[in-house]
Amino acid sequence: MGKSSKDKRDLYYRKAKEEGWRARSAFKLLQLNKQFDLFKDVKRVVDLCAAPGSWSQVLSREIFKDGKNDDAKIVAVDLQPMSPIDNVIELQADITHPKTLEKIMEIFDGEKADFVCSDGAPDVTGLHDLDEYIQAQLILSALQLATCILKEGGSFVAKIFRGRDIDLLYSQLGYLFDKVICAKPRSSRASSLEAFIVCIGYKPRPGWIPSLKPELSTEEFFQDMKIGRSTLNENLVFEDEERKVAPFIACGDLNSIDSDATYTLDESSLKNISLDPVQSPTAPPYKKALELKRKGQLKITK
């Protein structure tokens, strides 16, 4: 990475490295929390699609700040391995699998979560309609688990890609939460269609008991929930789905750092200051070498 690259001149990127965050996305959750006070009275948290762990870092530092909430529990779930984080229980698992739900409930001693969040996103293709669809499926997968594990009155936050059909998602979430807000943190680049859906006050659907089953698609999971989906009546009259526009809120002080701007390096930042690694490697080459050595399978050639 060259000295004049965009990342090096992005102050959020540099601040993340200086403050020990694993990614600049940590500032997005910090700004969302400052706007909505998401961590108030929170004891049990689930961070979905958590790797590399910047949101889990924020949750750990903020919830356990000043030595309080010693009985709080944070569970981070991702298919990829993560380096350990203080006060965070890490699960390398599939968020759509029932065993993942069972393991989380076991960790929480049968109690439901106060807050569920997801900063997950697909590898974008550049085809926005396709990227928007895949991201919507990822959100619905996270929402599946959230409906099974979130307590009544709890909160849910997830990354979204704003697009043509996002109002349908707003409408469907409105059946499950008292408030649904589209938020854009200052640390999220304005040039990006990325935003975050903030859902406050979970209200389970009457008579509907969510149950994770590997064979069910997200469409089949939510089909009996009656959340304003389109239907074709017996008289062949088509009733379209309800659509809503969620309130939009920009989070962060307007005088704070502009995430789309680049800044020249000042003299102090040009000094050779050695920083500790923000995370240890999850699968270093020497780890496999040590395993082979213990088994007597390591061959050393001269």
Rank of each mutant, 00 (worst) to 15 (best):
Q172P: 05
D224V: 09
H97R: 02
R9L: 15
D224M: 05
S217L: 01
V46L: 12
E152M: 13
L236F: 11
K288T: 13
K6W: 14
D41I: 04
T218D: 02
K6D: 10
I227M: 02
V77F: 07
P210R: 02
K103Q: 14
E152C: 11
P285F: 04
K17L: 12
L292M: 15
P285W: 06
I74Y: 04
I197G: 00
C148S: 01
G252V: 14
F196N: 04
A283F: 13
S256H: 09
D167A: 00
F161K: 01
K3H: 12
A289P: 03
L59Q: 05
A51K: 07
P277N: 03
E241K: 15
Y170M: 06
Q31L: 11
V42G: 03
N235S: 08
K17W: 09
E62S: 08
D167E: 02
P247T: 09
V278L: 07
T231I: 09
L79I: 09
T264A: 13
T218C: 00
I300W: 06
S187Y: 09
S211G: 06
F39G: 02
E106R: 11
I149A: 05
W208I: 07
Q144K: 03
M1C: 13
N255T: 12
D37M: 09
P81Q: 08
K203W: 07
F161Q: 01
F161A: 01
V180W: 02
C251Q: 12
K65W: 06
K103W: 10
L48P: 03
K295R: 15
C199G: 03
L130F: 09
I166M: 00
V42I: 09
L298S: 08
I249K: 13
S217A: 00
T262R: 15
L150W: 05
